[in-house]
Design a protein around this nucleic acid. Structure first.
Lengths: 342, 342
DNA sequence: TTGAAAGCGCTAACAC
DNA sequence: GTGTTAGCGCTTTCAA
């Protein structure tokens, strides 16, 4: 018994498929007489009719599906940042009646975004979350590709350019400055910056901000005190060893650029038996959901990741539903979350 | 400039749409002559042609989309168990060329599954992950609904019935027995069980197993030593207070039924200033990715959640692609992961 | 080898 | 008001 379709109902009741479609979908329209409608509804229920969303979507030229693009090799679901953003996205999608399509990475390195663009004929638009593996070049390339393909999208994080796109992020230069300010006002003179990679957009912004902030306190950020771990634990340990073996120039405070780096730092602190903040102060960027479970509780400049997802989805759906609107670039405020480490 | 379609290419090259479809999709078939094919391919590339997956899907009656159903009110992306399973699912989907559709919860309580079944006309099949909020009744109801709707699916976790469905889980009775065995052999006589809710399928299985295991050591699991927190922190604290205020009958070991309960227990232990395992031993079920970040590191009976997701997806896709196959019920082995708490 | 044509199941424009 | 019809963009027989 194949699934009943619109025309089956039509045949049974003795009306046109159009009438059935109308009766079923356009609630209180006048297009169908009340008793004909009742008959149709009853038949549909009896036959256990469910619409074929696919056919519907093809005819309406819209799927109410948004695609998620995460240019990242790692499994995306373990990343707290992404988890937060996804929750925010979901909250909007739920409210507006959309669903989320998660593309499986193609496996062919570099081609992911392109492939996902192709698949996107299945979706009404794309949400892009930039992660620590996106260079500034990657990001602008992607933007161009999407623009020329005429695909609607909305981007989260790590784009500091000026192209007119839907974007939600934070002002990382400002965040860096705030970090410098905070630590310097606490009396720290030797402040180190633990980062991922010097080529990351966020790294550049944060560094800029740190320098600006420090210079207001008559301080500097010498390159020996900027450590790029490439997100490798080993490398992080090497860098930290260098900092802490050098008794004379040992930093008294460390600012970490993201969650992963903070975890490595915690591991190091535990391994070396340091006390925080006695031996060294720690200030972290990000790490939203993590703060609760870490001991000691990190002092952080928290990024509103959930809200970012929520907003990005909102902006995208707005653009889809009323194509006249302008694209927006939104920078959300960050917040100091007190912990015991700085 | 609307997106070019098959017929645009056909018109331009001067062939039928069928020829274009063949040339583009059926690689080395003999249906199209080599130079005609070359021409078609070139034209397609020049015009920047991407197929409309929607139309394709409608014609082929398959989307290569799998839907995810999580009957849970909470944001699903924060649940480590689900995150693990999702990663496993993704790994299979990637290998087999499918994508994942995440339904947004409808908001109407109780209707979620039904709604998602309707939406499922968009997908080739459904993956269901049962969580701690699923009663045994919920699960069987869902199974029946899906069966009568003729929807293919594959279920993860918490179904201990015998219906012939694709299912991946662990033998929780056996796990409970193993827990009892482990703790009893370490000399514990007063073993308590911290669980979520007495109505959960897993609770029943675990209890059964614990009792079986304990009785082999001449021990019992009195009802005072089974605590159901309803996953509320307050309630957990009340129960634990009762256990620890009663000096005479204080448990020397606690077995926790899942990750969330373990976290509450850790909070309690910290708040009350207990030492583990000196004051009390802790053995946890599950908590795969969490173990690394918790201090002290929990001793756990680890469930292969990633593998569960991987397998569930595999089984579902197999059934979709060769409908003759039988459905399978797979119970995966759990493993003792040593920590410092028991 | 190739082209024409009939769907896939639904919506929406257009007659009646 | 109600029914008819022409698509949506692609795949796949079936003739030629």
């Amino acid at each position: 018994m194949a699934a009943p379709k619109l025309s089956d109902i039509a045949k049974r009741v003795g009306v046109s498929t159009a009438a059935v479609s109308l009766a079923l979908n356009k609630g209180e329209t006048t297009r169908v007489g009340p008793k004909k409608r009742a008959e149709i509804l009853r038949a549909a229920a009896e036959m256990g009719y469910y619409p074929n969303e696919l056919a519907k979507a093809l005819a309406e030229r819209r799927t109410r599906l948004l695609g998620l693009v995460v240019p990242l090799r790692d499994p995306i679901f373990f990343n707290q940042f992404i988890a937060q953003a996804l929750s925010g996205i979901q909250s909007t999608l739920m409210r507006r009646g959309y669903n989320l399509l998660i593309f499986s990475p193609s496996g062919k390195p570099g081609r992911e975004t392109r492939d996902q663009i192709m698949e996107s004929r299945f979706t009404d638009g794309l949400i892009l979350i930039n992660t620590r593996s996106c260079t500034s070049q990657d990001v602008t390339d992607t933007i161009n590709e999407l623009k020329t393909a005429g695909i609607r999208f909305s981007m989260i994080n790590s784009y500091y350019g000026r192209a007119p796109i839907n974007y939600v992020g934070v002002d990382d230069a400002k965040l860096g400055e705030a970090a410098a300010n905070y630590l310097a006002s606490k009396g720290h003179r030797k402040i180190a910056f633990l980062s991922g990679s010097a080529t990351l957009p966020a790294h550049l912004e944060l560094t800029k901000g740190l320098q600006r902030g420090l210079s207001k306190h008559g301080l500097k950020l010498p390159s020996e005190r900027v450590g790029c771990t490439q997100y490798e634990r080993e490398r992080a340990f090497t860098i930290l060893d260098e900092w802490f073996d050098n008794k004379r120039d040992q930093p008294t405070a460390i600012f970490t650029a993201d969650e992963q780096l903070l975890l490595h730092l915690y591991d190091y602190i535990e391994a070396r038996g340091l006390s925080v903040p006695e031996d060294v102060s720690v200030l972290a960027r990000g790490n939203v959901g993590l703060g609760d479970r870490l001991r000691p509780r990190p002092t952080s400049l928290v990024i509103p990741t959930f809200r970012m997802g929520e907003l990005a989805a909102e902006m995208l759906i707005d653009e889809i539903e009323k194509p006249n609107g302008k694209s927006q670039r939104v920078l959300l405020p960050f917040e100091l979350a007190p912990g015991t480490t700085a």
